[in-house]
């Protein structure tokens, strides 16, 4: 059983930071295992000009660290930190995007965290989780408009990409996180003092 500190102070307790870091690493690892599948999928779609869809389909998974960190720690900044940790570990291990990983991680963390923030950091249940999936989609899509050259795509493709990303985030960052939260609550492994 883990006790999560409930203090409202901005100082981070060591055990919270460590929990956040470990969750980030586990999520990062699970999706790192997925790397080859992503590459295969993207290679298959490349000649059709549809490679961005491989990214859109899986982005929800890469972004799971943020909402999970938020619902576990329940503190402002947890989402950004969780995603940033995941990106930092990936970079320090020599991930394929190098320093660009950190920038994306930061944007994804902010996007996901914004969903909890607009609800005033009061709702950590399914409302907060789905709200974070929505803001996460919007914020990261704006980032993609610049970084991945999305602003030059035909509007039809853009809409299709947006919908795919939204579905991916709704599933991985929404449905799946809610299910995980239920399991955690049922098991009673978290105790808030």
């Amino acid at each position: 059983m883990q006790t999560i500190s409930k203090s409202k102070s901005t100082r981070w307790a060591l055990r919270d930071v460590l929990l956040l870091a470990f969750v980030a690493v586990f999520i990062g690892f699970i999706f790192w295992v997925l790397g080859p599948i992503y590459n295969l999928l993207s290679a298959a779609l490349t000649p059709l000009g549809l490679a961005p869809f491989a990214n859109e389909l899986l982005i929800g998974g890469w972004m799971m660290a943020a909402p999970l960190a938020s619902i576990l720690i329940r503190q402002a900044g947890a989402g950004v930190l969780g995603e940033f940790f995941a990106a930092a570990v990936e970079m320090l291990l020599g991930g394929q995007w190098g320093v660009a990983t950190l920038l994306s991680g930061l944007v994804q963390g902010i996007g996901s965290e914004a969903g909890f923030a607009v609800l005033g950091y009061k709702n950590w249940g399914w409302r907060g989780i789905f709200s974070s999936a929505i803001t996460g989609t919007i914020v990261t899509f704006i980032w993609s408009a610049f970084r991945d050259g999305y602003s030059s795509y035909h509007i039809g493709l853009l809409i299709a990409l947006f919908i795919t990303r939204f579905i991916s985030l709704l599933f991985f960052g929404g449905v799946l996180v809610v299910a995980i939260q239920k399991l955690i609550e049922k098991a009673g492994v978290l105790h808030r003092d």
Binding site: Q2, L14, R15, L18, L19, A21, F22, V23, V25, F26, I27, I30, L34, G61, M64, L68, L72, F171, L176, A179, I180, K182, L183, I184, A187, V189, L190
Partner: peptide, 25 residues
């Protein structure tokens, strides 16, 4: 990858290890 049980078990390990590491530190 799409089953919550996988993540649940990973989180259990994360909880256990973070606590052990915090105590160790």
């Amino acid at each position: 990858i799409w089953q919550p049980q996988l993540y649940f078990k990973a989180i259990l390990a994360a909880i256990r290890w973070s606590q052990n590491l915090a105590e160790g530190m």
